[in-house]
Write a protein that binds this DNA or RNA. Structure first.
Length: 111
DNA sequence: TGGATGACCTTAA
DNA sequence: ATTAAGGCCATCC
C-alpha cells in the first residue's frame, strides 16, 4: 500500500452522498495529476475490500465510464438513488454534483 | 492542433 | 494463485 493509494482511498471515501468526483480530480487531489489511471485501478481492484463508493466516481465527461453494461446500469441506479440526476445517456451534471474535497494536495487545473 | 483523460494490463512480492 | 502498484500513450473534445 503506497501513499498515493491511501490518499486515493481516503479521498474517495470522503465523497459525500449525492456527490461525484472524476478520476483526474481524485488523482490531482492525491498529488499526482498524471495518475488518473491508477485511480481507476484502485477503484476496480480495491473497492470491495475498502468499501469504497465507486459508484460516485465518474470520468471527467460527467458520464459513467463503465465498460460492462450491467455494472453501468447498476451504477446509474445507485447514483439516482442518491439523488443525482442523470439524463438518458447517463450524463451527470458535474457543475452541480462535482465534489470539491477540502484536502487539496496540488491542483491548479479545475474551474 | 493540442491538451486533458483514462473502470487496463503487466510486473512484483 | 492472489493482491497491489505503476505506467505512458491512444482517444475525444
Amino acid at each position: 500500500m503506497t501513499l498515493f493509494t491511501e490518499k486515493v482511498i481516503e479521498i474517495i471515501q470522503s465523497i459525500p452522498r449525492g456527490k461525484v468526483m472524476t478520476y483526474g480530480q481524485i488523482a490531482g487531489t492525491a498529488g499526482n495529476p498524471r495518475a488518473a489511471r491508477q485511480v481507476v485501478r484502485v477503484l476496480h481492484a480495491m473497492s470491495p475490500k475498502y468499501d469504497l463508493p465507486w459508484h460516485r466516481v465518474i470520468n471527467a465527461k460527467g458520464q459513467i465510464a463503465m465498460k460492462s453494461d450491467s455494472a453501468y446500469n447498476e451504477q446509474l441506479m445507485r447514483l439516482e438513488l442518491e439523488g443525482i440526476e442523470t439524463d438518458i445517456n447517463g450524463n451527470i451534471d458535474l457543475t452541480r454534483y462535482r465534489w470539491n474535497p477540502e484536502i487539496r494536495y496540488e491542483w491548479s487545473n479545475w474551474v
